[in-house]
Simulated scan of single mutants.
Amino acid sequence: MAGDEHAGAELTRTTQHAITYASRVASAAKERNARHRADNAELIKQFEQRRLAGSGAPSTVRDAAKRFRSAGGLGNSRLPVRAESVAPSRPKAAEPPRSGDDDEDFSQERIMLRWD
């Protein structure tokens, strides 16, 4: 009987610790999300006012990127400058299907051919 009471008390204590830990993690996540939302709202305001397109834009965006990387424990402290950026490539045109390959002829007639 004493072992059951001890196990019950241990279970209660462990449950309380788990609940406390979960509430701390949830609180920290809510605070972090609120900061991100505030940062994003400020960037949206600047974008709407066309301030991000001007000369101050790169430093604002770069500062936000640095904060994001450092908050996430990510490396790469140096961002490439515009001259180092690679222009996006255009997708290549799809090749037309090959015709005349007897090895790859999977027409219904050849598949359904029955050998009795």
Rank of each mutant, 00 (worst) to 15 (best):
R35Q: 08
R37F: 01
A38P: 01
A38K: 08
D39T: 14
D39G: 13
E42N: 03
E42S: 04
L43Q: 04
I44D: 01
K45H: 12
Q46D: 11
F47N: 14
E48W: 01
E48Q: 15
Q49W: 00
Q49T: 08
R50M: 11
R51E: 14
L52A: 01
L52W: 00
L52V: 05
S55L: 10
G56R: 06
G56C: 02
A57H: 03
A57T: 02
P58N: 07
P58W: 01
S59A: 15
S59R: 13
S59M: 13
S59H: 07
S59D: 14
T60R: 09
T60M: 12
T60G: 03
V61P: 07
V61C: 11
V61K: 02
R62P: 07
D63N: 14
D63P: 00
D63G: 13
A64W: 02
K66P: 01
K66V: 12
F68S: 12
F68Y: 11
S70C: 00
S70P: 00
S70L: 06
S70D: 04
A71G: 06
G72C: 05
L74C: 01
L74Q: 03
G75F: 01
G75R: 06
N76T: 11
N76S: 12
N76K: 11
S77Q: 07
S77F: 04
S77G: 11
R78E: 09
R78F: 05
L79G: 08
P80K: 06
P80H: 01
V81M: 08
V81E: 10
R82K: 10
A83H: 04
E84R: 10
E84I: 09
S85F: 07
S85L: 15
S85Y: 02
V86R: 14
A87Y: 03
P88E: 06
P88F: 01
P91A: 11
K92D: 13
K92S: 14
A93D: 09
A93F: 02
A93H: 03
A94H: 06
E95N: 10
E95D: 12
P96F: 02
P96K: 08
P97M: 04
P97N: 04
P97V: 10
